[in-house]
């Protein structure tokens, strides 16, 4: 699924717009523990979380994630937005819960992904 389609489907507010709306989301991962995401999320996945600080962006960069969705109306601060813009990591926000967002994505065919090592 392309980022533009995901934004429309989940009615997301883009906080940091993607460099390319056509970039693909190949899976999804949900966690608020950074080490869990770092160790288990697959590259190309969208990450749904309530963690909205600069290290969230650092993890997304290192794990080569497609985008971050902040649930429950969580908003990043200006430093986090700046870092995401610098690093090219799209950030969306939504008033929906993590469960709802993940459910909608899964129903639309975005698979759950977990890294195998």
């Amino acid at each position: 699924m392309q980022l533009s389609e995901m934004e429309r489907l989940l009615e997301l507010s883009p906080i940091v717009k993607p460099v390319d709306q056509g970039n693909e989301v190949t899976g999804g991962y949900v966690s608020d523990l950074l080490s869990d995401v770092m160790g288990n999320a697959c590259a190309g996945s969208v990450w749904i979380t309530i963690q909205a600080h600069q290290n969230t962006v650092a993890v997304a960069v290192l794990a080569e994630l497609a985008a971050i969705i902040l649930s429950n109306g969580v908003m990043p601060d200006t430093h986090t937005i700046q870092k995401a813009e610098d690093k090219g990591i799209p950030i969306y926000s939504s008033p929906k819960s993590t469960f709802t967002l993940a459910g909608e994505l899964f129903q639309a065919g975005v698979p759950s992904t977990k890294k195998q090592t």
């Binding site: 608020d32 523990l33 950074l34 080490s35 869990d36 160790g39 979380t49 963690q51 600080h53 290290n55």
Partner: peptide, 8 residues
């Protein structure tokens, strides 16, 4: 902040 999960 999502750190300190004992996974590092």
């Amino acid at each position: 902040l999502g750190f300190g999960a004992g996974m590092g």
